[in-house]
Every structure is written in structure tokens, then in C-alpha cells.
Nucleic acid binder design. Sequence first.
DNA 1: AGTTGATATATCATAATGATATATTACCGA
DNA 2: TCGGTAATATATCATTATGATATATCAACT
Lengths: 190, 190
Amino acid sequence: MKSKTTTRYAILGLLSIQPMSGYDMKQFVDMAFKHFWSESYGRLYPTLRQLETEGLLKSRVYRQRGRPDRRVHTITDKGRRELTEWLEQPASLPRVRSDLLLKLFFGHNVPVPSSIEQIRRQREVLETVLKTLQSYRPAVDEGGLSGDQRMFFLLTIRNGELVNKARIKWCDEAIKILSKHVSSNEETPS
Amino acid sequence: MKSKTTTRYAILGLLSIQPMSGYDMKQFVDMAFKHFWSESYGRLYPTLRQLETEGLLKSRVYRQRGRPDRRVHTITDKGRRELTEWLEQPASLPRVRSDLLLKLFFGHNVPVPSSIEQIRRQREVLETVLKTLQSYRPAVDEGGLSGDQRMFFLLTIRNGELVNKARIKWCDEAIKILSKHVSSNEETPS
DNA sequence: AGTTGATATATCATAATGATATATTACCGA
DNA sequence: TCGGTAATATATCATTATGATATATCAACT
């Protein structure tokens, strides 16, 4: 039994909104899904070919002036049925990989200020991620999306906001704790 | 130039705490790192062999009564140097994959109560994850860890707490918003 | 006696990533 | 106008990662 990758359904889901090229999908995912999903061309294009041979989508090449040809994909009824079937299946827990926490856990191998600096750097990046996320809100509010789609989009943004705010709050806590630890151990370096 | 995978450093980091077998590492990561990292046997064992040929760790087989032999690995000075070098490098952003958010984003393809049910289910799992995480605290507080190691362990737990609480809060918000949406649209089903 | 479960190491097919290849055209500065 | 950079667009490939399975030992329970 061949396994059904999530990429299949990500593609079908995107096509349930509007017809798209592989390039469009990559752009869209890198923007709108950045904080909870990613797709690579290496999965996108082969999966698009496979979905077409299975009859879950159709594609047509469009010539453009001033640009390379675009292969635009459209979801079929069969594709929509597979998509809704997947949507009803229970979702799994988010999978996280944080090398920051890994490095922090092994912090006894470096001076504490080095760990503090790591967290400070990450905090900065998280701040810009949060701002980018929030900058999408107006566009989503105005943009020509249907009521439902607007709501779902805003809900995913809200998730990114809350989670990233929690991460930033943790950074502040951690920096405070580690700084206190440094000043209380000034006379006994590692 | 052969790439240095994070698994290398995860292994070296674990061995910087104490000598371990591959099996020990898998157990430890599945417990203590569950909310921010994972390792598979498929990476662990080959990487252990490689690190040994590079002289970053040594291993010795111990016979046990009533159990299979254990290959216990010890970090070398060279290994410690590579580890600290990595620890000083800037960490990247946490990588997240959440098929829940993906499904929610495509929610216009299913009845709204179906999306609500997805979130409710996830909320339940998140609640048990949070409780499991918090149950580690006393063991870490008592356990025979050095002061620094205790602190770093508690900091990673605290991260899991804050992030998971944020996720749960989001679930509650999202359920409320979606429920309101359902009741306000009772006369016009999809 | 037979099954399950924990301990322990190892490998393999499949899947995912990140980088690169290939092309077309716009745009901008030298 | 020449050359470089950037955006658009599709595609592939080597390297990595995942999840499942194989193999084996012994305890504990049925």
C-alpha cells in the first residue's frame, strides 16, 4: 500500500482555493504557511505529476509574454473527494525541531553568557517573525477572500502570534534566570 | 565537504553528560527532548559508528546478565572540542510542521463543526502533553544532576510549558470563534 | 509451552531536504 | 549596449531523515 504523503493534500488543498502552478504553490507556502509548514520543489513537482496520473488534478500549459511557460493545475472532483476525506482524519501533534533548546540543554559545556547570547539572538529573530506575521493581517482582512477563507487564514495567523509570543516570553524568562546565575557565580568561573 | 548533521552534536551532547549506549540515547531523547527534538535508530547507530571512526568517541561492549550486550560510548577530548564549537554557532529558528493548521486553513472544504472537532481533539492531546511535561519537574529538581544541568533541564521544560499553554489558549479561542460562526449561520448551511 | 514486553543493535525502503541545473525575460548601471 | 542581477518557472539529484522491520536475549505472565 503506497503511503499518502501530506504534500499530496497540501497541494489538493491549495488547488481547492484556486488553480495554481507549482511555482505559485511554493511562493504561497513560503509566505502564508511559513510558521507551520514548508514544501520543497523536490517534493512539489514530482507529486504534482503523480496526482495528475491519478486523476486528482488536471494541468494545462499557458504561454506567457516575457516569462517562461506556466503549467497551471486544477483540482478534479476526485481530488476534492480525497481532500475532504483527509481533512476529516484526526490531525497529529505539531512536530518541532529546535536546535536552540538542544544547545541550551548542553549548556554546561560553554560559559553561561554564551547561552544567554544564543537566546538573545533568537529573541531578535522571533520578534521580526512576529512582526511579519502581524503585517499579514490587514492584507487578509481586505483581500478578496471568501468569508470562510478569511476566517481560517486569520486563525492560523493568530496561532503563530500566540506561539511566537510565548517563545519570546520564554526568552525573557530564560535570559533573566541565566543572568542571575552568572552574577551569583562571579567569583567561581567554570 | 561532508555536512555535519545535528544528530552528531546531539550524540556528543548526550555523551557530555554521561556515557551511554545507542538505546539509552533513544530512550532519553524520547523522554526529555520529546517536545523539541527526535532521533531515530536509523540515524543514531550509523552516526555513532561514524563518530567513532573520527575519534570523537570511544565505545566498549559490556556483557550483561539477562540482557543483550550493551555498547557504551564515551566522548573524547576531540569530541568535546567539536561539541563546544557547535554550541557557539548561532541556533536556527525552530522548525514546525502542523498538519492541524494545514487542515484548518483548508477548512472551507468541510463543515465548520468538523474543524471544531479537530481542534477539540488536539486540545485534549496538548493537555496531556503539558501534564506529562510538568510531571518531570519534581524528578529534575530531586534527581542527581549538577546545579547547571538541573537549570538547563528546567529551562527546556519551561519552554514546553509556555509554548503548549499558548497552543491550548489558541485552541480555546479558535473553538469559540468557529462556534460563533456556526450559530450565526444556522439557517444557511454550506 | 507460548505470548508478550523490555532490552539492545542494526539495516532498509521510502520520504524529505537543499542545492543545483536549465531557461526566459526585465531591469539597471557602467 | 554590454553584463550582471533578479524574478519567473520547471525539474532533478545527492544527501539526510523517517519509520518499519529484522534479529536476538531473557523475564514475566497465561
